[in-house]
């Protein structure tokens, strides 16, 4: 059988050319290509890792932000409430104080009025008294200017005393 008889020449050329091919490709093609592929795969793996880390960091940052924001919000609410309370307290205090002051003033006023009134009354009384005396004096002077009148008066008075 012609087909299954290997020929020496073909084996020779096959060996020579295949080994040459193997040598050249090994040195100039397979090594650089495989190295590049390895390198690229490593790079990709690293990049993916970095991306994953970055994503995780982002997530944690976001959580942090959220937390900070919440805290800030709470703080703000607290401060607002405090301010409101303080305001209310101040207003209440002011109101109280004003009330007290008002009360005090009213009391003082009332006292002054009362004193003034008493004084006025007293003065009025005094004036009325003095006026009365004056009037009485004048009347007396007029009424008792003559003896007749003095006598009738004494008479009248004596009548009254008799009744008593």
């Amino acid at each position: 059988m012609e087909l299954i008889k290997p020929s020496i020449g073909l084996i020779f050329w096959m060996s020579v050319s295949f080994f040459t091919l193997l040598f050249i490709l090994r040195k100039f093609a397979w090594k650089p290509i495989l190295n590049m592929l390895d390198e690229r795969e490593q790079n990709i793996a690293e990049a993916l890792n970095t991306a994953k880390k970055a994503r995780e960091e982002m997530a944690s940052l976001k959580a942090d932000n959220e937390r900070l924001l919440n805290e800030a919000r709470l703080e703000r609410d607290r401060m607002l409430k405090e301010a409101r309370d303080t305001r209310d307290a101040i207003i209440a205090e002011s109101k109280d104080k004003a009330q007290q002051e008002a009360n005090k003033i009213m009391a003082q006023t009332r006292e002054t009025i009362r004193t003034e009134k008493n004084a006025a009354i007293t003065e009025l009384k005094n004036q009325v008294a003095s006026m009365s005396i004056e009037i009485a004096g004048k009347i007396l002077r007029t009424e008792l200017g003559n003896d007749e009148k003095q006598k009738s008066l004494v008479q009248d008075m004596l009548k009254d005393i008799k009744m008593n």
């Binding site: 020929s7 020496i8 020449g9 073909l10 050329w13 096959m14 050319s17 295949f18 040459t20 091919l21």
Partner: peptide, 17 residues
Amino acid sequence: PLDFSITKNVFAMLVSI
């Protein structure tokens, strides 16, 4: 004789290489 000719197969193989 020993035949180391560049035959059709050798030639085709060299082309493929």
